[in-house]
Amino acid sequence: MMTKARSAVCFFAALLMLLTAGDGFGKIFYSKKEAMDMAFGEQARVEILSLFLTDGQIEEIQRQAKVKIDSALFSFYVGKQGEKLLGYAAIETHTVRTRPETLLIVLSPAGELRRIEVLAFHEPPEYQPPARWFEQLYRRPLAALDFNAEVQGITGATLSSRSALDSARKVLAVFQVAVRKGQN
């Protein structure tokens, strides 16, 4: 009788664990369409610029961005209105602690950091950096995007702000090495 009761308790405990396990806080805030609208406006035409990075370019990007590049294929979304270039955007996904965060990183036509939006965040919401934290990164040059330079840290969201900063540096470095140099 005791064994049956224990089995029942174990069963319900296991069921409870199963039901409560997993990624409960995961949240997708925007679709790709909405991300492009935020980046370039609803009237813009969006093209994809695929970059096939050479070993030399990867090395240079890694040196400038201080982050590891894990793929030689990088895509920029290029916003245009008629012949006018509106800017560049990248959708970057990285792991914060154990779960991913997806950012939209928008650059001006000249390659200046203009906007960052969180598209999806799967860690608990208290780890998500607020919009005002991202704002301090805008228009700063690549070298200044560093906690040791001009960027203020954020209590309680250290890992997520660090990974966001890494992503911003990566996108700026890719632009400078593979797009701007190609233009010059």
Partner: peptide, 16 residues
């Protein structure tokens, strides 16, 4: 390469 980008983003956010 465009299909790769589409697949990459589809893994994390919906298209529409």
């Amino acid at each position: 390469s465009q299909a790769v980008e589409k697949l990459r983003t589809q893994l994390v956010i919906p298209e529409e």
